[in-house]
Simulated scan of single mutants.
Amino acid sequence: MRRRRSTSRNTGGASKSGCGRCCRCGAPQAEALREWALAWVLDGYQNHDPDVLASWVTEDFVQDDPLNLGRFVQGREAFRQVMVETFIAFPDCAFVATGPFCLGMDGETLVVPWRTFGNFSGPLAWGPPGQRKSFAPTHRRFDFEGCDFYRFRDGKVASLRSLYDPLQVAEQLAMIPNRQGVVMRIAPYVQGVAASLPLIRG
């Protein structure tokens, strides 16, 4: 008699001998994931509490954000300070998920699509860490979408990479000229003249 081959699959859930909390002891699963999402989104972002957000990242946490102009925010305290500055600049900002939270097959990466909106009502520290400049509030409204890529380690966020259009954000906040405005329409001509000058070329 031939032995029947088992049809059960390892879906990444914790076994009785595992930690009972995560897949590969990396990303939080099921109940733990819901616990993290509620704390991160509701207690942290929606309540504008940088301490809650900082408590859910590792000590060596790394953040990659388009508005940091290619520089990383490194460390829990540095991330906390960025969130303090964010909530000062945008005191009424809100974050909402625009789709399901998608867990990667590596069991360590979580992808979250989102939308954020609010008003630029306070001073904004903008730029790479160590070179941040303060921008006065323009009291302009912003509303844009993006996507976050979280990588977990031991139930906490070890890295966060955000993807969105930084030019769209800067335009909405009136920090740069509108791409459809007069300044941007004549910019190519000005650049062409400047590029033809020997001083600029050399």
Rank of each mutant, 00 (worst) to 15 (best):
M1T: 06
M1R: 08
R4T: 10
R4Q: 10
R5H: 06
S6F: 01
S6L: 04
T7Q: 07
T7W: 11
S8E: 09
R9S: 09
R9Y: 00
T11Y: 04
T11I: 04
G12D: 07
G13C: 04
A14I: 00
S17C: 07
G20K: 05
G26I: 05
P28A: 13
Q29G: 05
Q29H: 03
A30S: 08
E31I: 01
L33T: 02
R34Q: 13
E35S: 11
W36D: 02
A37V: 06
L38Q: 03
A39H: 01
L42G: 08
L42E: 15
G44I: 07
N47F: 01
H48C: 13
D49I: 10
D49Y: 10
P50S: 10
P50Y: 02
P50D: 05
V52T: 12
S55C: 02
S55D: 04
W56R: 12
V62Y: 04
Q63D: 05
Q63N: 09
D64K: 15
D64I: 15
P66M: 08
L69F: 14
R71Y: 14
V73Y: 02
A78L: 02
F79M: 06
F79K: 00
V82Y: 02
M83E: 00
M83Q: 03
E85G: 15
T86P: 01
T86K: 08
A89Y: 01
F90M: 11
P91A: 05
D92E: 11
A94D: 06
A97E: 01
T98V: 06
P100I: 01
C102Q: 00
L103H: 03
L103Q: 02
L103N: 01
D106A: 03
G107R: 07
G107M: 02
V111M: 09
V112N: 09
P113W: 12
R115F: 07
F117K: 15
F117H: 14
F117M: 14
F120M: 10
S121I: 11
G122Q: 10
L124S: 05
A125M: 15
W126R: 15
W126M: 15
W126F: 13
G127Q: 04
P128M: 01
G130M: 07
S134V: 14
P137V: 09
T138E: 03
H139K: 05
H139E: 07
R141H: 12
F142E: 02
D143A: 09
D143N: 13
F144V: 05
C147Y: 02
C147G: 05
C147K: 04
Y150I: 03
R151N: 09
R151K: 09
R153C: 01
V157H: 00
L160S: 05
L160G: 08
S162E: 13
L163N: 13
L163P: 00
Y164M: 14
A170Y: 13
A170T: 11
E171G: 01
I176P: 08
I176G: 06
P177A: 13
N178H: 12
R179L: 13
V182R: 10
V182K: 08
V182P: 11
V183F: 04
R185D: 15
P188W: 05
P188Q: 11
Y189A: 15
G192K: 06
G192N: 11
A194F: 06
A195E: 03
P198C: 03
P198H: 04
L199H: 11
L199K: 12
L199Y: 11
I200M: 15
R201L: 09
G202D: 11
